[in-house]
């Protein structure tokens, strides 16, 4: 069975949502405390949402120095699939594993609402099972979700197909409507929306499934 490490920082609060989503898709999630120094034995890693280290200084700024981040870096450099959701995305940018930064929302309000995303690249571990141009309804839940980077970086991300998800109706002022980006190899992905909270039509949307299914399949391949 695919084993997924869900990294838990002091202040994380979406680890159970992530675990529940992973379980629902037939894989096994195990919490990994932030002081852990190895991710040996895991097939995929998720950095969940929340407020790691209280979001003091900047979201992700202190989490980046947690011991587990060296293990995440190692895991990613070996090609292991890594997914940062919301605060996890902020941590990955602060750690330099993904380009750019997340700023306060344009309207300076906390946003908690469904958003429509457009799949703009399928060459990442998260979007590989989705269709190019497919629209997905996935909720956001953040105060600092406005993606920014310099123009040169944005051009490079666009050219290399690394902007994997865009907002149809930009809710937070993200540059070029960016909702999710991938690293160069496509095995590290971060996004502000919460696919793990879009697992059931009864609760509003099941559109997160196609993303997480694709992600877990990569982990399953590592087993073979």
């Amino acid at each position: 069975m695919t084993r997924v490490g869900v990294v838990v920082f002091p202040g994380s609060n979406c680890e159970y949502d992530a675990q529940s989503a992973v379980d629902a898709l037939g894989a096994e999630a195990q919490f990994v405390w932030h002081s852990t120094t190895s991710l040996e034995g895991f097939d995929a890693v998720i950095l969940p949402g929340g407020f790691a280290h209280g979001d003091y200084l900047r979201p992700g700024a202190l989490a980046r120095f947690s011991p587990v981040m060296n293990a995440v870096r190692d895991f990613a450099s070996k090609g292991g699939p890594v997914l940062g959701i919301c605060n996890g995305f902020q941590v990955l940018t602060e750690a330099g594993l993904l380009p750019g930064a997340l700023q306060k929302n344009r309207g300076l309000t906390f946003l908690c609402q469904p958003t429509t995303l457009i799949v703009t690249s399928t060459s990442s571990v998260l979007t590989r099972a989705a269709q190019l141009g497919q629209e997905l309804v996935i909720p956001i839940n953040h105060f600092s979700g406005s993606y920014t980077c310099d123009d040169e970086t944005l051009r490079q991300l666009n050219d290399e197909g690394r902007v994997v998800l865009r907002y149809r109706d930009n809710p937070n002022g993200s540059k070029d409507d960016v909702a999710g980006v991938a690293n160069e190899a496509g095995n590290v992905v971060g996004l502000m929306p919460h696919p793990e909270r879009a697992m059931s039509t009864l609760l509003g949307s099941a559109d997160g499934r196609v993303l997480l299914e694709g992600f877990l399949e990569v982990g399953a391949r590592a087993l073979r």
């Binding site: 200084l57 900047r58 700024a61 120095f65 940018t93 602060e94 380009p99 750019g100 930064a101 700023q103 920014t148 980077c149 310099d150």
Partner: peptide, 8 residues
């Protein structure tokens, strides 16, 4: 290293 994020 810590107090600022050089990206922004």
């Amino acid at each position: 290293r810590l107090l600022s994020n050089p990206v922004i």
